[in-house]
């Protein structure tokens, strides 16, 4: 179809993309550090990886993917000028985010009640640091989505002007994207 002109810029405010790049960089370095540190402590990492709950990780991965999908639908809705549909999709996405937090919280509760903390060993240092850092990003992303949802509910966006929705959406997808790597890296690969 109209292959005339693709936009030069990604959806949303460009500043969020600068921020996203910075975040990806931090996570990327964190992942690489994990991988290379693991290479020096293979036995330890393989042993303690088994104490993690892969079912919880599955639920969380599904929650984030679904949430991201809902956000895509929210953006589509606002592009069709349907503020209320956009609002509802965002609420659904937030519910999925909440599910993530609850499941992850339960995992933390389990580990903490076993006396695990950042100082227990190198594997747990990484597991807790990486997932907690990501956990905080989910919280931040939810705050952003909530702000966007409320504004959408008030009719603050339209098909013509909805940069805010795209901005929040882009950030949320980044949180999802990072988890896509984190899940197999920390929970599965051995």
């Amino acid at each position: 179809m109209s292959e005339t002109k693709k936009p030069r810029w990604p959806p949303g405010d460009l500043v969020i993309w600068i921020f996203i790049m910075a975040e990806l960089l931090v996570f990327g370095v964190f992942f690489a550090t994990y991988a290379f540190t693991r290479a020096h402590h293979v036995a330890q990492f393989d042993t303690y990886q088994l104490t993690l709950n892969r079912n919880a990780a599955l639920i969380n991965t599904l929650a984030l993917i679904t949430s991201s999908y809902f956000v895509v639908r929210a953006v589509a809705a606002i592009r069709a000028d349907n503020s209320q549909a956009c609002f509802r999709w965002l609420l659904a996405a937030l519910a999925m985010g909440l599910l993530f937090l609850v499941v992850k919280g339960a995992e933390y509760h389990h580990h903490f009640s076993m006396g695990v903390n950042l100082g227990t060993n190198t594997f747990y240092m990484f597991y807790l640091s990486l997932t907690f850092f990501h956990f905080l990003h989910v919280v931040l992303g939810m705050i952003i989505l909530l702000a966007v949802a409320l504004k959408a509910h008030r009719g603050g966006y339209s098909a013509a002007e909805h940069t805010g929705v795209e901005t929040g959406a882009s950030y949320w997808h980044m949180v999802d994207l990072v988890w896509m790597i984190l899940f197999p890296l920390v929970y599965v690969m051995r």
Partner: peptide
């Protein structure tokens, strides 16, 4: 996710 959710497939450059 990058291509379809973030919409980067639609972006040039």
């Amino acid at each position: 996710i990058g291509d379809y959710f973030m919409g980067l497939k639609q972006v040039a450059g």
